[in-house]
Amino acid sequence: MNRTLDSAPNRVLTVLTVVAVLMFVMAVGMALFYAPTDRQGDVQRLFYLHLGTFMGGALAFFIGAIASVAYLVWRGEGWDALALASIEVGLVFSGFTIVSGAIWARPIWNTWWTWDPRLTSAAIMWLAYAAYLMLRNGIDEPGRRARFAAVYGIVAFSSVIFTTVITRVRPDTIHPVVVGPSPQNAQGSFGLESPAMRVTLVFNIVTFVVLTITLIWHRLRMESFSRRVQALKMKLMAR
């Protein structure tokens, strides 16, 4: 693990970072200037970033769950570092998903927040992963911390699955669905009639996936560096 991602040449990560930043600028530009204005007004443009960051966050949490399983199987410290890096990045992405959804909801639903099943499950998901970081901070012994965090990381992923499928299984949600049929009570639904809207959406999703991978990689390198510094500190203190 440490010898693959973390030790890969800096050049690959540098190129990926430049590509991710350029794609991010383009994605925001397409959402603002390329996609046509919907009947809902300009606030609908937030949707491209909203769904893109949701996909990025879900991917990060998925990587976190896989890394947690891998840690429990192989006990490599790198897997624990990857789980932590992924979940921290996932929290940033899903945090924006929730905030952008609230901002869209204000003019469309006439409220910043409602305890709708989808919104509630998204909030629970975010809090569950915030608790993951608290759990890690609460355990001093590294091996025990990694084991507990791995088990928690796997369990917490159920909240991502739940949040993703809830609009398909709960007819009382008012959260609209863009791909496939919307729930019967959905409010503020809109279609992606124009090809420019669909292109913008796909580009935003791809961009946020690339951005997720790039940020996880950076965070993983920092985590590995942090652990090496910590190990050296301990070594020097033991002298």
């Binding site: 603002l32 007004g41 300009d42 443009r45 937030l46 952008s100 901002i103 869209w104």
Partner: peptide
Amino acid sequence: AGIPDNVAYLVLGLAAL
């Protein structure tokens, strides 16, 4: 054109980003 002017919320969303 019947489209509401809610660009302020778009700006708020970008600020949140």
